[in-house]
Design a protein around this nucleic acid. Structure first.
Lengths: 163, 163
DNA sequence: GCTCGAGTTGACAACGATTCTCAGCACCAA
DNA sequence: TTGGTGCTGAGAATCGTTGTCAACTCGAGC
């Protein structure tokens, strides 16, 4: 998994996929998907996905979240789940990270810059701040002449419950 | 992209996919794919892939490497490229990391524990060691009661040539 | 209330990276 | 030569994700 860098001003380099379904219909406004920003509607589906994100603290895949919604009686199309999660991630309200197999998983998170420490057995996830790491990353980048620097970091281990 | 943690003793959690093509025919021996270890043969294809890995220093996808091989006149099947790269990665001879889109990319690397600083424009990659980060990660993990700790870290920026 | 335009949905189709399948090949020891 | 094991690769299959588009929803303006 890769942690999400909330302070990064990275724009996605996957132009081919990020044009996506919503590309043509977006007003281009950056706002929270559920916050009534111009052009964005708080639809039942979006509210349901947002609410579902608050019910777990580990990382879940879009399909898992879709199933969770169905079990809650909040039927939302899978494509809509993906879209909504992408919106939430773009808005910094959820973290999107990748499993080792390349699958995207999501988790509600705080908006400050942080990293994740994840139990490799049960998935329990702890948010961690690391000023030392920020300092180090920027220092190292300067040494090599890199500018506009961002980073991702993830810690794995076995939590006390699973040890 | 996610950096590879060479000192990690993680075993893959993707049981479904890692049984793979080679599962049935492997002797189960862990050795360098090109090093004549018991049960593993230095086939033309494996040698070609290994040699190709030494011709570039940025991260390349399996398909890019496949094309590179073809252009060199070393025709190797795509499935074989994937398999061989997986072998090399398992042996710690190449780094396998994921792009933001979830695609696996590979690069020849040193076997010591290191991280990558990658130019987001041209892909130039610099290997970096970070003892401070190791210390920090272990300290933080201890604070939260995590054991058997590993981590991934990647730095992105714009290199001097692209700035 | 009606119309229109913009936003959005969702089932199904499509995509693309990756892995599986299996007949056939390669190699080596007996 | 035989038998066993390792390996290949083209095409099939897999799977997470995204595209498509008809239909729906909503709100502004008349």
């Amino acid at each position: 998994m890769t942690s999400t860098d909330h302070t990064s001003t990275d724009t996605s380099t996957d132009g081919g996929t990020d044009g996506g379904t919503d590309g043509g219909t977006d007003g281009g406004t950056d706002g929270g998907a559920t916050k009534g920003a111009a052009g964005l509607r708080p639809t039942r589906q979006r509210l349901a996905v947002s609410a579902a994100m608050e019910t777990f603290s580990d990382f879940r895949s879009a399909q898992e979240i879709h199933q969770l919604l169905t079990r809650r009686g909040d039927t939302v199309g899978l494509a809509t789940v993906y879209r909504t999660l992408q919106r939430l991630a773009d808005a910094g309200e959820v973290d999107r990270v990748l499993t080792e197999g390349g699958e995207a998983v999501y988790r509600s998170c705080s908006t400050s810059h942080h990293h994740h420490m994840v139990c490799r057995v049960c998935g329990t996830t702890v948010e961690i701040e690391g000023p030392e790491v920020e300092d180090w990353a920027h220092r190292v980048a300067e040494q090599h002449g890199f500018t506009d620097v961002s980073h991702t970091l993830e810690i794995f281990g076995t939590c006390t419950a699973c040890a």
